[in-house]
Nucleic acid binder design. Structure first.
Lengths: 117, 117
DNA sequence: ACAACATACAACTAAATGGTTGTAGGTTGT
DNA sequence: ACAACCTACAACCATTTAGTTGTATGTTGT
């Protein structure tokens, strides 16, 4: 494959780690917006907003379609779900810890090979 | 309040935007690990790993407790759930878009005041 | 007491980030 | 045709970040 899961996760979380980008994502998830329309909402240059949109696009969190001279940005809810899914996997690891604690409490004698190295 | 929700979100996503930190978080969610134990898993200096742990700690994604000379790090699953919750809110915004589309399809005459500014 | 160990932090460097201004190209409407 | 508009990108700058090494402090076991 070209980009690993970890590369994608890096891009996702990096894109989400900026409040302006999160706000842009909120808007484009709620509905299509042109880049200039988005830019008018923030106290920074058009180019800065355009770069934020590009970061979100590279991360796969939004897509753009051309309509005449406008670029209409739209949030990709599937990508958002993928990020949430990754967090769900982290939570599953935690549940595994609890399960191991239960094992220990249930069978104090059994050597459960907790540490392997 | 001292730190806004956005500040916390910045810290969360920034902490998660590094693969080493995500891996550390996986390990400490699965069970307590000392900082040196964690450091032995990665091809970088102890200080580098210690800084990654500090970033996760500042973000509230893990907590440390002292036991003798060791600092035992443990993942905070509640914080992970909070991050997932924030993504859920993004998804809800998207569902709002769909709801508005339904409105439009159901009542093509009604002026639904889509844009307010 | 003392050597080995675990952590913490300061100081430094290279690279990435978030912002700026400027320029260039495609689209629209008169 | 042409002016106004929308987008894209390059070049630059200040700050942050991810790594390094070195040093200081506390803990453990003999």
């Amino acid at each position: 494959m070209s980009t690993s899961d970890e590369d994608r996760a890096d891009a996702w979380f990096h894109a989400l780690a900026d409040r302006t980008r999160r706000d842009i994502l909120r808007r484009v998830l709620a509905g299509e917006h042109s880049v200039t329309a988005l830019a008018q909402s923030y106290d920074m240059s058009f180019a800065a907003v355009q770069k934020h949109v590009a970061v979100l696009e590279r991360a796969g969190l939004l897509t753009k379609r051309r309509q005449g001279r406008e670029a209409l940005a739209s949030g990709d809810v599937e990508a958002v779900r993928s990020v949430a899914l990754m967090l769900g996997e982290l939570e599953a690891l935690w549940r595994g810890r609890i399960a191991r604690m239960d094992e220990l409490l249930a069978a104090p004698d059994t050597p459960t090979t907790t540490e392997t190295d």
